[in-house]
């Protein structure tokens, strides 16, 4: 598979075109906005936390196929996770899109997390890594109380 096809896999294009969890869920108690100054893209991540569990996650914003797909898939996978699990996922995702193959081996045991493997193609496109990580950094900022918002720069 060419690097391009690896990057733009059907799953990503599908999430890019028809994002899941798009919109602001009810009774959100945790949110943050992120911004990529390079391309002007923005994303807002919404979370409803209850007793240390992500009950619901949603997002709004506009961006490229990679950033929208990443936000869509992330909000899917976060539902029902504990904050500890979310923190581990954040680290793993960061490795997934930045480290080479060898460094990732053995790290991704959760079946659910494997769904995110489709985003690993972004490794071959250093200029696009920030597109994939914007939603995750914004989510992390939301958990830390939002504040100034996130910039990829």
């Amino acid at each position: 598979m060419s690097a391009l096809r690896e990057l733009y896999q059907e799953v990503i294009l599908d999430h890019g075109k028809s994002p899941r969890n798009f919109g602001k869920p009810e009774h959100v108690n945790c949110e943050s906005s992120g911004h990529n100054p390079l391309c002007g893209d923005t994303v807002t991540i919404y979370l409803r936390l209850n007793d240390g569990i992500v009950e619901e996650a949603g997002f709004e914003g506009r961006g490229c196929a990679i950033s929208i797909a990443s936000a869509s898939m992330m909000t899917d996978i976060l539902q029902g996770k504990s904050l500890d699990e979310v923190r581990v996922m954040f680290e793993r995702f960061h490795h997934l899109v930045t480290e080479d193959e060898a460094a990732c081996e053995g790290g991704f045991d959760g079946e659910e997390f494997e769904k995110l493997m489709v985003l690993s193609g972004v490794r071959e496109f250093p200029m696009r890594v920030k597109c994939a990580t914007l939603a995750w950094h914004t989510m992390k900022s939301a958990l830390q109380g939002g504040g100034e918002g996130v910039s990829t720069e």
């Binding site: 990057l7 075109k17 196929a65």
Partner: peptide, 14 residues
């Protein structure tokens, strides 16, 4: 239509 500029840029680059 329906394709973000950065996705186009990446594909054209290749």
């Amino acid at each position: 239509d329906g394709v973000h500029a950065h996705d186009i840029g990446t594909i054209l680059d290749r």
